[in-house]
């Protein structure tokens, strides 16, 4: 075979150099600040692992909230996306229109979505008005203004926004499930639930891996929706690792501490993604 020579390098080098320069180098330098007490103004001094130990003492509630939010979001958005995909894969006549419709929220700016939902979930907003109109006025509450509902509300808004996007992933996955296989299972005696559990779901494994890994990463890195919906409140009740890093770094001017938390966050995301891929990929066929 003819050797490719230098041409492929011409294509690779510029992109690789740019990535190195604007992503990798600053990240590594930033990582180094994690071991200092830099405040952005004075020159940093080495503090060892002090930032990390401080986070494990003071920041654990943020980790808990992030995990709860990630759990709600990952389960919710994948279940909703899969449900939409199954519903819109074959049967409905209007499926093409509906697919486009469900995808619309995913292409709207998260900030716009957040403002729409702040309005809906407001104490005097349409949701509470509807509840009152149907006689469930006692259930009306400040959804974003109290600790026990705010986190779930944020998760629901995110699921609403990205269910369509995950629907696309599962629709693509369902293309790979041949109709004949489901018919063979039907003739073998499997009812709808068995066919889903025994045939569709195992064959959707690659799509499930992609769906859960992508949603886990975005849940861990969640920032703008929380900022726009609750600003991390009430009293830090919806603070996630993303908003916490922002607050500590840019509001409180603790660049060293912020870098340490950010570094932990990156490590956590990588670890979670790896574990999920291992669990879901199973045996390679």
């Amino acid at each position: 075979m003819k050797r490719p020579g230098a041409v492929p390098w011409l294509f690779v080098v510029p992109a690789a150099a740019l990535t190195l320069l604007i992503l990798l180098v600053p990240s590594l330098v930033g990582a180094a600040y994690a071991f200092t007490d830099w405040d952005g103004l004075t020159s940093p001094s080495w503090v060892g692992l002090a930032n990390f130990t401080e986070f494990f003492d003071d920041g654990s509630h943020v980790v808990g909230q992030t995990l709860i939010l990630a759990g709600l979001y990952v389960v919710g958005v994948n279940a909703a996306g899969l449900g939409l995909a199954l519903g819109l894969a074959h049967t409905l006549r209007t499926r093409h229109v509906l697919r486009a419709l469900f995808l619309v929220p995913a292409v709207v700016s998260p900030l716009v979505v957040a403002y729409i939902w702040t309005f809906i979930l407001d104490v005097d907003g349409p949701l509470n008005e509807i509840l009152e109109a149907v006689g469930l006025g006692s259930s009306a509450q400040p959804w974003l203004g109290q600790r026990n509902t705010a986190l779930a509300a944020v998760a629901i808004v995110m699921v609403w926004q990205f269910a369509g996007y995950h629907m696309l992933i599962y629709l693509a996955g369902l293309q790979g499930v041949q109709r004949e296989l489901l018919e063979a299972a039907e003739v073998d005696g499997a009812g709808p639930w068995r066919r889903f559990a025994d045939i569709t779901l195992p064959l959707l494994r690659p799509a499930l891996v992609i769906g859960t890994v992508l949603s886990t990463i975005s849940a861990f890195l969640l920032f703008d929706q929380v900022m726009a919906l609750t600003g991390g409140g009430p009293s830090g009740g919806t603070d996630t690792l993303g908003t916490y890093v922002y607050e500590q770094t840019f509001v409180n001017g603790r660049y060293g501490y912020g870098s340490a938390v950010a570094l932990l966050l990156v490590g956590g995301v990588c670890l979670a993604a790896l574990v999920q891929m291992r669990l879901l990929r199973g045996r390679r066929s």
Partner: peptide, 20 residues
């Protein structure tokens, strides 16, 4: 009757072997 209740077996043109 559904296929299950008819209790017949079918061999498909593309075999329809469960790949997993």
């Amino acid at each position: 009757l559904t296929p299950r209740l008819r209790d017949v077996a079918m061999v498909f043109q593309n075999y329809a072997i469960y790949p997993h």
